[in-house]
């Protein structure tokens, strides 16, 4: 870990050690810089739209600041942020599904034409939104099973099983070139 990262973690750590108080701007800046891009990427993967992902990410950060949760480490704060963002996405998705049940798929493509792994994108789209989110959090964001269980309010064992099945399904889909 670089010195810059250590300093960054220390600043966030100091800020979140004061429960009930809003995070100081420098600490928030460090936290935002380290989590904004991954969070927007995660939400883009979930929502299929960059605009929606931007809105949801911004709202998730604001809610995190408003709640001023008491956590012992930046990892826990990050986990809280992802839980908030996931809940915001779920609320939005449910609302959209009620309003337009036939339009469950996002209208805006997740990426540009320069997608590096079309098969993987296609295979990921075949997964249920929750399974896709869990796979992304585990394999890209590096959250452990306990943290993912916290994000989705499920048992740790369930996360292990869902991830195992999702991985098997992805592997099988990738063998067929992402097609079911």
């Amino acid at each position: 870990m670089s010195l810059q990262n250590v300093l960054r973690q220390t600043t966030v750590q100091d800020a979140i050690a004061q429960p009930g108080e809003i995070m100081e701007p420098p600490a928030f800046q460090a936290f935002y810089d380290s989590t904004s891009a991954p969070l927007r990427s995660y939400l883009t993967r979930l929502a299929g739209s960059r605009t929606v992902a931007e809105d949801l990410a911004q709202e998730a950060f604001i809610r995190l600041m408003q709640a001023s949760p008491r956590y012992e480490s930046p990892a826990q704060l990050k986990s809280y942020l992802y839980r908030t963002a996931t809940n915001l996405f779920t609320d939005r998705w449910r609302k959209r599904r009620r309003e337009a049940p036939l339009d469950a798929r996002p209208s805006e493509p997740a990426g540009d034409a320069t997608v590096v792994d079309v098969d993987l994108e296609r295979a990921l789209d075949k997964l249920k939104p929750r399974d896709r989110a869990m796979v992304w959090l585990a394999y890209v964001e590096g959250l452990d099973h306990r943290e993912i269980a916290g994000v989705f309010s499920v048992h740790e064992r369930s996360v292990r099983v869902i991830l195992f099945r999702a991985r098997k399904k992805l592997a099988s889909l990738l063998e067929k070139g992402g097609r079911s």
Partner: peptide
């Protein structure tokens, strides 16, 4: 593969519409 996909996706995302100060 997922890591590579995430990297390319983040590169395409660019800067957020609002910066940390505005969100704060």
């Amino acid at each position: 593969r997922l890591g590579a996909l995430a990297l390319s996706e983040r590169a395409q995302l660019g800067e957020p519409q609002v910066n940390a100060t505005q969100v704060w």
